[in-house]
Amino acid sequence: MSLRTARRRNDGGDDTWPGFVDALSTLLLVLVFLLSIFALAQFFLGAALSGRDAALERLRDQVAELGQLLNLERQSNADLRDSLGALSANLQTIRSERDDLSNQISGLETALNDARNKLAEAEMQAASRSQDMADLQERYQSTAEDLAQEKELSAAARNRVAELQASLTALRQQLARLEAALDASEQRDKEQQATIVDLGRRLNVALAQKVEELAGFRSEFFGRLREVLGQRSDIRIEGDRFIFQSELLFASGSAALGFEGRTQMRQVAQTLLQITEQIPSDIDWVLRVDGHTDKRPISTAQFSNNWELSAARAISVVQFLISEGVPPQRLVAAGFGEYQPIAQGDSAEDLRRNRRIEMRFTQR
């Protein structure tokens, strides 16, 4: 505070003008301080980021922002100068503007702190760029060493190419010999193929003969079986199948052969054994026993579904035939459940026809 200001205060006069001058002096000091800070920031940024174009560009942007702030402050200072005359005429307006200047000073202090933070961030970025530059130099050194090694490998590779070309020439010669051998082999294959075709034709003829023989034995087997079992409505021949109704062999829901069923199967076994003695050993035949049920569901302690029941009945017949002397390797058991009906209706007669045991005399 100046001596004149102090005297006026001591004299009890109006201190508005000296207060305004003090505020203006404080503002100018802050501006000078900010300019000093900006000058120092530019100095440190110029020293830290020399030679780094990308970082320097960002710092220039920051300096430009600071310059804009300085221009704003200069503009505010000019506004203050213009308002100096008006403040002399209107004391209340001067006091209000003094308060506004105080707020602006607070804003400038905040801007100063922001500038300091940006300066610290810029210094950190400069340190990071220095580390990146060191890493790039190290990579350059490593790349140079790798390049020297690649040059050595290239010389070795040229020698290897020469060796491979010599090997390729030898392989081409060997390939020519192999092609000649392949042509001779193809000629032999054509001759062998003709032989195979002839053998296949002979085999088909022989198989047809065996099938005809087996069909003859099947007809004889079914004929004798019909004579032994007699004319019954619950036993019939359909095509290549000999069909027994399940009621003739098993009780309802059971897979155990009853007395009548064992009697019928014993006659089947005796007839099969007689026919077996006449069948040549080179005919590989089997008697397949198929179990079938109707579509009504079943669920008992022994069988959870019709499939299990049909399979169990077929196995029961096969096991009885084995006990009667039929070779087990000539028997096959299969269960089909309700999935291959011969009658599609829901009547009692249709359901009865679907519950059956079928026997097929066929080749393996």
Score class of each variant (00 low, 15 high):
E73I: 09
L70D: 01
D22N: 11
E227N: 10
D189I: 14
E97W: 13
L24C: 00
I342A: 09
Q62V: 09
S25D: 09
A47M: 10
L175A: 14
L24G: 00
E358R: 13
Q149M: 08
F336E: 08
A184W: 00
A89W: 08
L80K: 05
E349I: 11
R188E: 10
E260F: 04
V211Q: 11
R52F: 06
G291Y: 03
L273C: 01
L199A: 13
N306G: 04
E179F: 03
M359Q: 05
L273D: 01
Q131R: 14
G253W: 03
R139G: 04
S102F: 06
A181G: 14
W285M: 04
A23Q: 14
I243V: 15
L351A: 01
D346M: 07
D135L: 05
A148E: 13
Q340E: 14
G230A: 03
A343D: 07
S102D: 06
E152S: 14
A78E: 07
G291K: 02
E138N: 12
L40M: 07
A251G: 12
R158C: 05
R9E: 08
N159C: 06
S347T: 15
A181I: 12
D100I: 12
D234A: 05
F244P: 06
E109L: 15
D294P: 03
R9C: 08
G230H: 09
Q245H: 12
G239K: 02
L136D: 07
T5Y: 02
F33A: 15
S130Y: 11
L229V: 11
R201I: 03
L24M: 02
S25H: 13
I105Q: 12
E213K: 07
L175T: 14
A115H: 09
R116K: 07
R98H: 03
V197N: 12
N159I: 10
A134V: 10
R262M: 00
L309T: 02
G67Y: 05
E308P: 01
E277H: 08
R313C: 00
Q344F: 08
Q193G: 04
L168H: 15
A166G: 03
A206F: 05
T271M: 00
S36G: 13
Q319M: 03
L101I: 04
S96I: 08
A89H: 08
N71R: 10
E324F: 03
A343Y: 11
L272D: 00
K190P: 02
V63F: 12
A64M: 06
Q174K: 15
F43E: 05
V268H: 01
Q42Y: 08
A39K: 07
L331R: 10
L168A: 15
W307I: 06
L171A: 15
E163P: 04
S254I: 11
D53V: 13
G13K: 13
L203W: 05
D79S: 14
F361N: 04
L168M: 13
R201K: 09
